[in-house]
């Protein structure tokens, strides 16, 4: 293995996995909340909220990275607060890479969860109400279990997509080997170095395999779980 991959390349793969995983774990609760708001409630400004959730899907990733840089930069309105209150620095760190990845993959998770919430029969929640279940009780015993296949497959797809996030990450946290150089950034770097073609091809193949495995796993899980929850 060590002959096949250099320590820098291994670090890039490890960092990508870590960044994508953290992005999914932190965005999942918010994504469930957003999906639930979109699927089950009505409120003024819902159309705007819907658009905001989905905007990373259509905006150039570089712009997302730039907006994050403005907001969370050392002198940005949010970055300054985080730095002063919690000592958290996002710019040029792996945590910042996770944030950029989370923002980019957020619409993917929300869509998957929202679809499965909309597919779940609201009549079942009515049934639970007549059986004495309050709002939170219903959410945890009926709504979320029924939406679980969607939640899980959304998370896996977001994870796989997060492994490959490039534009937002490089704009927000730059390209520091061992710190913020994820797999796609390492591939980019390799293509910029004379004689780096072999490395680029190798890493690209790994990237492709991981993405494919993620999609495959997501589909498999969704199918298994749908059977398990009896639909």
């Amino acid at each position: 293995m060590t002959d096949f991959l250099t320590p820098d390349e291994l670090a890039a793969i490890g960092l990508s996995l870590k960044v994508a995983l953290r992005a999914v774990v932190f965005s999942l609760p918010l994504a469930i909340l957003a999906a639930w708001l979109l699927a089950r409630t009505r409120f003024p400004g819902k159309a705007l909220f819907d658009a905001l959730v989905h905007v990373p899907l259509v905006m150039p990733p570089v712009v997302v990275g730039y907006v994050l840089l403005v907001l969370f930069g050392a002198r940005g309105p949010l970055g300054g607060l985080l730095q002063d209150w919690f000592g958290i620095r996002l710019v040029f760190t792996a945590a910042g890479a996770s944030l950029a990845t989370a923002v980019m993959s957020f619409p993917l998770i929300v869509r998957a969860i929202r679809l499965s919430l909309e597919a779940a029969d609201p009549g079942l929640e009515d049934a639970a109400r007549t059986l004495g279940a309050g709002p939170l009780d219903r959410l945890f015993t009926i709504t979320l279990p029924l939406a679980f296949p969607g939640i899980l497959s959304g998370a896996v797809v977001a994870f796989a997509a997060g492994l490959g996030e490039f534009g937002a990450v490089i704009t927000f946290v730059s390209n520091i080997p061992g710190e913020t150089q994820t797999l796609p950034l390492a591939i980019y770097t390799a293509t910029q170095i004379p004689g780096g073609e072999a490395t680029a091809a190798k890493l690209a193949a790994i990237s492709f395999t991981l993405a494919l495995a993620g999609l495959f796993l997501s589909e498999l899980l969704a199918r298994r779980l749908r059977g398990w929850i009896g639909r």
Partner: peptide, 27 residues
């Protein structure tokens, strides 16, 4: 509704698909 304690048998049963019959009954 959850405070009324009024039983409701729906035309389409509306059993919870992810729970066994025993757990549906116990709900």
């Amino acid at each position: 509704p959850e405070k009324r304690r009024i039983g409701y048998v729906f035309q389409d049963a509306r059993l919870f698909p992810h729970l066994s019959v025993a757990r549906n009954l116990a709900y």
